[in-house]
């Protein structure tokens, strides 16, 4: 088997998920300069809600599996969107003029709250995601790609194209970009700042729900703490690509996924067996630090000026 190609395929799949989550971070950051620490938890809630819907539908109805998955998404996405809106409304909007670190702490607080709410509802154990799609594998050269992977890649690509269209071709997108450039002036031009910011949270949360469903179906497992590491990685990806930059988040996500997969596959050989595959997280962070040392604003980020 071709290990390089195989790890590339796995890495791109993982990277696509990272990219979806990273987009949520980057949109919010680009507009109000806030690290939405609770975003990973939104992904988790998305996965959990989808899980509940899918298992109960699979147990009680005879609907086709794909339709069940779709219903899972259709329920999870609005839930997450509502959650994202609530987060913005309750935890961030009142603090928009507070010192920079204050909303970070409320974000952390909300993250703790959401995790524990999830634990109360779904328990503290790992949840087995029902296998809705019969796995089939296709050969690409000497490597395998599953239909789940294909679906993840296709869906994320489609979503990202959709997002790009939204941001660059619609009135709302224009308003978002204007707000990102200068909130006050955008407001003077008649942009409803509050609505634009809320929209960024809502759209990001919808992407998060999709990502949550994807992670659940891909790994066939969910846990109330799954959002933490996923969010961390996605945020890393967003920074890697240049935070606040949509294309950067996508590139960063894919890159991080590939680096992780290759790192896990090759780190043993690279270090002569000294470091094993459990060091894969180190690889990701090490690359991040190296990139930032040479490009302090990320791969595609613009040079940040003085921030007041």
């Amino acid at each position: 088997m071709d290990i390089l190609l195989q790890q590339l395929i796995n890495g791109v799949t993982l990277g696509a998920v990272y990219a979806l989550v990273a987009l949520g971070y980057t949109m919010v950051y680009g507009i109000i300069g806030l690290i939405n620490f609770a975003h990973g938890e939104v992904v988790m809630i998305g996965a959990m809600v989808a899980f509940t819907v899918i298992t109960s539908l699979a147990a009680h109805t005879q609907l086709p599996p794909l339709l069940i998955l779709l219903i899972g998404l259709v329920v999870a996405a609005p839930t997450c969107m509502l959650l994202g809106y609530g987060l913005e409304r309750l935890a961030y909007r009142p603090l928009r003029h507070a010192p920079r670190l204050t909303p970070l702490i409320t974000a952390i607080g909300m993250s703790i709250v959401l995790q524990n709410v999830a634990m109360i509802i779904w328990g503290r154990n790992y949840i087995n995601f029902p296998q809705m799609i019969d796995k089939t594998s296709y050969h690409i050269g000497n490597a395998l790609i599953t239909n789940v992977q294909v679906a993840i890649l296709f869906l994320s690509a489609l979503t990202m194209v959709g997002l790009m269209w939204l941001v660059y071709r619609t009135k709302l997108g224009t308003a978002m970009r204007a707000t990102a450039q200068d909130q006050m002036v955008a407001g003077l031009m008649g942009v409803n700042i509050n609505r634009v910011i809320a929209a960024a949270f809502v759209i990001g949360s919808a992407l998060a729900a999709l990502a949550g469903l994807m992670v659940g179906t891909y790994y066939e497992i969910a846990h109330y703490q799954m959002g933490f590491m996923l969010g961390l990685k996605a945020f890393t990806a967003a920074v890697l690509g240049g935070i606040g930059n949509l294309a950067g988040a996508m590139a960063g996500g894919l890159l991080l996924g590939i680096i992780e997969a290759l790192g896990a596959g090759y780190i043993g050989d690279l270090t002569g067996g000294f470091l094993g595959s459990h060091y894969q997280d180190i690889f990701a962070f090490f690359v991040l630090i190296t990139v930032l040392v040479f490009r302090p604003s990320g791969l595609l980020g613009e040079r940040v000026g003085e921030r007041a």
């Binding site: 950051y29 300069g33 690290i35 920079r100 961390l232 945020f235 890393t236 920074v239 935070i243 990701a284 962070f285 090490f286 991040l288 630090i289 930032l292 302090p296 604003s297 990320g298 940040v304 921030r307």
Partner: peptide
């Protein structure tokens, strides 16, 4: 600066 530093220290 700022949040880039935050993520590097986190890493």
């Amino acid at each position: 600066r700022g949040d880039y530093l935050a993520i590097v220290t986190l890493g």
